[in-house]
Amino acid sequence: MNKYSLHLDSARCIACHGCEVHCKINKELPPGILLCELNTTPMFMCGGVPKSNFTFDTCRHCEEPLCVDVCPTGAMIKRKDGIVYIDSNTCIGCMACTRACPWEIPIKNLLTGKAVKCDLCYDRIDAGLKPACVSTCTTHALKLVRLEAE
């Protein structure tokens, strides 16, 4: 059972896109790659006010990740706490993971030739910190939530 999830409080989010930028900086990603994406719905009328909602999309860290099974070198790893990450030392950039993923989440980093995707900044979590996208969220709308079994 996964231990963590990212949750966006749409009522607090102002769609400043800081999460996307901070993720890129922290992972030193070249142009063209975003590991998370903040999207805005088209405006709709609600109580006389045009409104939009915001959604935050990134790797789902599936309970039974297809990308892990398909990886020929064992570079795609699911940790005990549910975080799915890529060991870049063993990744060969074949991108079988992308083809296996229903949402085509992993992306090839052309600078390194390896696959990249959201790993919930597990290095930061292990150090007692929050993921980059959560740490600097402008209105504290994005949260790392701990999932608990009923």
Binding site: C16, H17, G18, E20, V21, I25, T136, T138, T139
Partner: peptide, 19 residues
């Protein structure tokens, strides 16, 4: 790494500041 002042902003910083 750049973040908003932890005491005053709880780390919050916008895309422009991060950039």
């Amino acid at each position: 790494w750049i973040e908003g002042n932890p005491t005053l902003l709880g780390g919050a910083l916008c895309a422009r500041g991060l950039a």
